[in-house]
């Protein structure tokens, strides 16, 4: 079953899973967008322009980081290689663009982020599946019976752990009827995702380490968890301005 899946979506076809997840996520987000006071059209625009900014931003960021190389081969800037891409730069530029777009369209930040939660949650599931197909984000070696044979060893199926965790988080939030304040839904999603990553990253076999010992992604997830808790509390009990 796993081998069939990995053969079917072997790289570069694993990108299909991300595209399918984006489409399903957008469809589901549209269903609930009105509940958060965001029109379907506006939601479509946000996701479309956000993805466009992510793709262009990721490419530009990669080019800028390797500017001397691209000065020798400038045609590479517009080549079709998906590997010419910096995902962190893409996310940064995508978010920056969305902030500017939201301000110009006078969109409220928190309700818009709440409306985007199904999109992000399904994308997280798609990311886990694409990792499984590509064999990336792989686990440590294990003797557990549910270990998968990957990269010449029996390993923790960390890609399956992250897919199941994302599925669980999506299910919990999709059926959540209460949203006491705008932003709580989004921040709960962030806190749950950070919590899940904090746990799962311990089983990763390719983790970057801090002080040659501590998993960098776990530390980052813990920091995100702290920030999301602080923001949840500030959303529930806003600091009252004097006077």
């Amino acid at each position: 079953m796993l081998i069939l899946f990995q053969n079917l979506f072997a790289p570069p076809r694993h990108m299909i899973l991300l595209i399918a997840a984006s489409w399903i996520g957008l469809t589901l987000a549209e269903k609930h967008s009105e509940r958060h006071g965001v029109s379907r059209e506006e939601l479509n625009n946000i996701i479309f322009y956000g993805l466009l900014a992510f793709v262009i931003g990721g490419r530009l960021s990669f080019v800028l980081q390797n500017i001397t190389t691209f000065a020798k081969s400038p045609s590479g800037i517009v080549s079709i290689n998906p590997d010419i891409f910096d995902p962190f730069g893409g996310v940064a530029i995508g978010l920056l663009f969305l902030l500017i777009y939201g301000q110009r369209r006078s969109l409220s930040l928190w309700p818009t982020l709440d409306a985007l939660v199904p999109f992000f949650a399904i994308l997280a599931i798609g990311t886990g599946l694409s990792h499984l197909a590509a064999g990336s984000a792989f686990g440590k070696e294990t003797t557990f019976p549910w270990g998968i044979d990957l990269w010449n060893a029996l390993r923790h199926p960390t890609q399956i752990y992250e897919t199941l965790a994302s599925l669980l988080i999506f299910s919990l939030l999709w059926f959540q009827k209460q949203n006491p304040r705008p932003g709580i839904l989004f921040l709960t999603f962030i806190a749950c995702t950070a919590g899940a990553q904090l746990f799962i990253q311990a089983f990763r076999g390719d983790a970057a380490l801090i002080f040659d010992r501590y998993n960098q992604n776990q530390v980052m997830a813990w920091v995100v968890l702290v920030i999301s808790f602080v923001l949840i509390e500030l959303r529930i009990n806003p600091i009252k301005k004097p006077g």
């Binding site: 746990f199 390719d206 983790a207 501590y214 998993n215 530390v219 997830a221 813990w222």
Partner: peptide, 14 residues
């Protein structure tokens, strides 16, 4: 969470 980071720390990961 912090305890889990310390417990699961594994210098052989890389």
């Amino acid at each position: 969470g912090a305890s889990w980071i310390f417990i699961s720390a594994d210098p052989t990961t890389a």
